[in-house]
Design a protein around this nucleic acid. Sequence first.
DNA 1: TTTAACGTTTGAAAAATATCAAACGCAGGA
DNA 2: TCCTGCGTTTGATATTTTTCAAACGTTAAA
Lengths: 162, 162
Amino acid sequence: MTTEERIKKELIQRFGDAYKAFGLSKLMGHIIALLLFSPEPLSLDEITKQLGRSKGPISQIVRRLRDKHLIRKVWMPGNNRKDFYEVEPEIFEHAFRNNLELIKNNTRIAKQLKEKVKTAKKDSLHSVDLRMEEMEKFYLLMEIHYNNFLTEWSKERKKLYK
Amino acid sequence: MTTEERIKKELIQRFGDAYKAFGLSKLMGHIIALLLFSPEPLSLDEITKQLGRSKGPISQIVRRLRDKHLIRKVWMPGNNRKDFYEVEPEIFEHAFRNNLELIKNNTRIAKQLKEKVKTAKKDSLHSVDLRMEEMEKFYLLMEIHYNNFLTEWSKERKKLYK
DNA sequence: TTTAACGTTTGAAAAATATCAAACGCAGGA
DNA sequence: TCCTGCGTTTGATATTTTTCAAACGTTAAA
């Protein structure tokens, strides 16, 4: 096996595990890794071939990756039949934003439950009230820092690519 | 159904979904929600009863929650047979730290793959080299902001509870 | 010391998820 | 226009994960 192949294999393996650890499909990680590795966009059946899977799941996962803005379709001259894909230039930022949505949902849960608890005005709900209060503050502060990170990263990235 | 019961039910439901969205077991979210709701620590079979599950999975998930430092065992006077559990006082922070570990793993992947790519010294690996470079910078900066958040939160929390 | 209640472990069953092969519809090229 | 190759959809199959019930070991109470 060549050095390139070993590196590609390890990238695929580790992205698969990482995606799974984040609660996403392992195959998602494999496709992302493959596209990160490849200097050129890949067609769907190139992906199926390299990952040794059948077309069905690849087609479905590719759609989901596109919905998440992690990859995008590329028009390739001289090939109007096949779809080619590459990773989004800002793939890491988009992945992060997907995660931010989960955080915002946590804030929402705390906020809504807190309201319901306050409306109920029951002593027995006092402890859960305090906890929802803390939870809301926690995730609101987290959102602020997540946004700090995003603005700083966009500065950093501009420096990198010019 | 009383107001308390409705709120408890909704909390359980929404924590279940949230935990699943983060790639964790739904049952984990249910147990956390139940303990967040309850003003008093709960015994294992109180949990099994309230969630309508059998002892096996509850026992296993409770262990995993303890490993993750999200809940802890409480000694209850007058009851030396049963184990009682409550949420960790800093449960949200601990949950966040668990997530931080995943982020650190991403940094590690980028760093290690970058090294291997550099050692190989192949032109064909140039594009993946750039991408691993960017990935590493991205997650390193993220770690910094995550830590900023943690220090700010600990200040904020002190203000809250004194 | 014996008993009974508790938490854990385990093997089987059920449910959920991932995967495949084949059928299908659509559009580009003949 | 008619093929042919492509991506998608679909129903069946395989794999993984979750759940349960029962057996087990341990320990507090009698």
